[in-house]
Design a binder for these strands. Structure first.
Length: 458
RNA sequence: GUGGCUAUAGCUCAGUUGGUUAGAGCACUAGAUUGUGAUUCUAGGGGUCGCGGGUUCGAGUCCCGUUAGCCACCCCA
């Protein structure tokens, strides 16, 4: 047999490697990732969000429109063949803004969309931070209804629950509460600096934040008030009560507190367990475009991982692209960070196969029977992998076990003669003999029953 | 973009003040065993010591540069 490609001179071989911050996804990770994406899709749809997609490449001016120098530095950009300046999307919000400005007339409002796609940022890499990563956004635009705010929190709750996280906390705040306090302290014009410093609490000690505030020439009394605000903890009710004297006498503060209270009330009515949602007045979210509710969510077991799902309300999404005023609210699941967290907790699905049944193929004479059985199992909705070559049974079972098949079906000439089949539960090594006597539907039903039993934790 | 740490087989690592042919465990392939996998035994394949340069009689080991990974800053998912 001749190799279609003769061996290359080792000196001419190109080193196979990926770019910094870009990675391959092997089956184990890709399966886990797709599992999460499926869950997110299901939860988003269960609230009526619809999918959209947009191009990876946009006109440069679309992406740089709001152009903070930070995003500008991180933007992947190049000149197209025709001399056109283009850039790769660095988030899904800017494309949504362009999309909304372009299509809102035919979509109608409120418009609820989800968008799960890859984005690119040329920033420095770290654990759980890459140059190519995925975002799973959902947004409701064109309405200021408090119900949309509530729904956003409920989606985050349902999503994290559906992923199977046992303990997580959704921390919420309202930008207007912060505005109220800043107003009262006479720091309204310093909000960016102050909020950025406050946002670091949890990562940096209160003393560190105080030092940063002092460095920004915020006076000590105001700084103490701000830190007091951030140290509030306890039940949402007690936090809100404690906020009253700090912000309740300003118009925005009043609105923020009332709206948080209403939201918590609604979440309770929707069945969110008490304690899942916490009011954390230190949450600001660095972005300056948030104007109302802001939220972050954390794995209780990995507080240092950072927020895995966050978002908030904004006043005007697409002001750069249209005169139409489009308020909205949305959040985003950081799936790469979540996967890193799940892996660290050992809660990541470790299967390397998407199939349910491994059909051991070791009796070449019965090749046709194997094909018939595999087809019947697939028609019944089961995913079946048949070994490619009739190798030793032990070898095949080893592969099936390593790849995480729940079931293996062993049928050789002895079984065909006796009209039986051996169905092995790979994890427990428990083996069931099925009497089917050539009646394929009987075999299929028995295998389906075994699969159901295994999935229930057999 | 700034600073620190790291880089030896697919993975985890050992490798003596610089000294002959760079090792182990796991994983992989095959056999003992032409019908049974987490725990057997045997054999085998696999290494430009990240890459490039320098010092030296001699570099995996020392020096410089570079690339990648991790950590902190910045920012954020």
């Amino acid at each position: 047999m001749t190799d279609p490609r003769p061996p290359s001179d080792p000196r001419t071989l190109i080193e196979p490697r990926t770019l910094k911050g870009f990675r391959d996804h092997l089956p184990r990770q890709a399966l886990a990732r797709e599992g999460i994406l499926d869950i997110a899709r299901r939860v988003y749809r269960s609230y009526g969000f619809v999918p959209i997609d947009t191009p990876a490449l946009e006109h440069l001016e679309i992406l740089t429109g709001k152009g903070s120098d930070e995003t500008d530095k991180q933007l992947y950009r190049f000149t197209e063949r025709g001399g056109r300046e283009v850039g790769m999307r660095f988030d899904l919000t800017v494309p949504l803004a362009r999309f909304a400005a372009q299509h809102i007339g035919t979509l109608g409002i409120p418009f609820k969309r989800y968008h799960m796609a890859t984005v690119w940022r040329g920033e420095n890499t770290q654990r759980g931070r890459y140059r190519e990563f995925m975002q799973c956004d959902f947004d409701t635009i064109g309405t200021t209804s408090p119900l949309a705010d509530l729904e956003t929190v409920l989606v985050v709750h349902d999503l994290l629950s559906a992923i199977g996280l046992e303990s997580f906390t959704i921390r919420i705040n309202d930008r207007r509460v912060l505005s109220g306090i800043l107003e009262r302290l006479g720091l309204a014009d310093r909000s960016t600096v102050v909020l950025r410093a406050l946002d670091k609490l949890g990562k940096v000690s209160p003393e560190g934040v105080a030092a940063e505030l002092a460095g920004q020439s915020i006076d000590a009394a105001a700084s103490a008030d701000l830190l007091k605000l951030a140290s509030l903890s306890g039940s949402p009710d007690s936090v809100l009560t404690a906020l009253e004297p700090l912000a309740g006498d300003t118009a925005p503060g009043r609105a923020g507190i009332d709206s948080l209270r209403a939201l918590l009330d609604g979440a309770g009515q929707a069945g969110v367990p008490a304690g899942r949602i916490v009011v954390d007045p230190s949450i600001a979210r660095g972005l300056d475009y948030y104007t109302g509710l802001v939220l972050e969510s954390f794995l209780d077991e990995l507080p240092t991982l950072g927020s895995i799902c966050s978002g908030g309300r904004y006043d005007n999404l697409a002001g750069l692209y249209t005169k139409q005023h489009l308020p909205g609210i949305g959040a985003s699941l950081g799936i790469d960070r979540l996967l890193a967290g799940l892996e660290e907790l050992g809660r990541l699905e470790t299967r390397e196969t998407a199939a349910d049944v491994f059909l051991v193929y070791f009796d070449e004479a019965h090749r046709g029977d194997y094909l018939r059985i595999a087809a019947a199992l697939r028609r019944a909705g089961m995913a079946v992998e048949m070994a490619a070559e009739p190798k030793r049974v032990g070898q095949q079972l080893k592969v099936a076990s390593k790849k995480g098949f729940p079931l293996a079906l062993v049928i050789g000439s002895d079984e065909f003669t006796a009209g039986t089949a051996q169905c092995k539960r790979m994890q427990s090594q428990h083996s069931t003999v099925i009497d089917w006597h050539g009646d394929v539907p009987v075999l299929v039903n028995a295998v389906a029953a075994e699969l159901a039993a295994v999935r229930l934790g057999g």
